[in-house]
Design a binder for these strands. Structure first.
Lengths: 214, 214
DNA sequence: GTCTATACAGGGATAGAC
DNA sequence: GTCTATCCCTGTATAGAC
């Protein structure tokens, strides 16, 4: 039997299990989450869970990877919407920062799963972690880099190294929220998110604003 | 009986327990760590652990708080050494960034405990978390703010809000390392730390460099 | 009187059997 | 889908040792 979550059983059961696992792992973390709770949340028997996934660990890793893939695609759409055709760069960078934080830390348990991954990072194999990074944070980074290059070619940004510029943008606009909210564990007001994004973007543009910005 | 870790029993036993708890909680996280393992690591019986600390949770919180207090004091010394009497601001900010990262993520398990706290943040009471933040990150932030004010008064830095400036310095020089290494879980080369610190400080100074910087 | 060593009760977990 | 074997953990209890 496969038991790797790929081909066995009814797909709608599998989806229910994955959704339930996101919820429970997100709420409890890996160690506290029980397979009983996940089965109950999914409305299936525990046997069905073990039919689709070999064990707790492989369920967790599968769920984490699928979740980060879905999030990356969502972020890609948001980047296209906010950074694809920029007129007011400052406003676009602020707005994108706000919606990005919202996408990662809102109702869906992306933030909680991110926290769970980070909590378990010493127990995760290097391969799996590399795959998770590539599908998630690095994919978003690459996507942003494309937009930054295009914006720079219009003279609105100026940098030697696009990767450093992207990283600094993320550090100044995303990480303050991630840090204060402990990766989405504690609430943070919409107003504070906007304030942080604005001050981060202003600092970013003082560093990386191009000759034709104003 | 007190059993809050304050007055009972021999102090050297208590110290051994706290040291062992740092090691084991740092290595395993809260949920995986067992009181048996902590007792064994400390070289005392489990009963002695329970003689000093009411339960696993209070041991963890005590250890986390004491650890962050010690780290803050160490960082305060480093700040005084590197930022107390600045001649070359860029070099001072880079050097301090490097030693700060080293202090937090080197051999001592500060980073591991920080990760454990972040993993448990949803289960920690607001009071305890507030106390931990005040004794740790916020204390270091305040300390840095004092140095930044003094440096700004010499015209080497310029900012409207010292707290934002300090936060951006930390975001640009500390968080890249914390993020890449997953708060110290994965190794990161000295060379990369220096490179990240330099590019972070350069971006910081493009934003916050004062009129008399050059 | 504090510590060690060990055993044990009670609960809960994974994983698998039926 | 239920039931259970097996294991591990917390926290307590019961011995005796320095």
């Amino acid at each position: 039997m496969a038991a790797d979550g790929s081909g066995a059983g009814r797909p709608e059961k599998r989806r229910a299990i994955v959704r339930a696992a996101v919820t429970v792992f997100g709420r409890e973390g890996f160690a506290r989450a029980s397979m009983d709770a996940i089965a109950a949340e999914a409305g299936v028997s525990k046997r069905t869970v073990y039919n689709h996934f070999a064990d707790k660990e492989s369920l967790f890793l599968t769920v984490a990877l699928e979740n980060t893939v879905a999030l990356s695609e969502h972020l890609k759409d948001l980047a296209a919407e906010y950074l694809g055709d920029v007129t007011d760069l400052r406003q676009a960078l602020i707005d994108f920062a706000v919606v990005r934080v919202g996408a990662i830390f809102s109702a869906e348990e992306h933030g909680a799963l991110g926290r769970a991954i980070r909590a378990e990072v010493t127990k995760i194999s290097a391969d799996v972690l590399t795959a998770w990074l590539a599908a998630g944070p690095q994919a978003s980074h690459q996507d942003l880099a494309g937009y930054f290059e295009r914006i720079a070619s219009r003279g609105l940004l100026a940098f030697d190294d696009v990767d450093t510029a992207v990283e600094h943008y993320t550090l100044l606009t995303f990480h303050p929220v991630a840090d204060r909210s402990f990766w989405g564990a504690l609430p943070i007001s919409e107003e504070e998110i906007r304030r942080v994004a604005a001050s981060g973007v202003d600092a970013f543009l003082r560093s990386y604003g191009g000759p034709d910005l104003h």
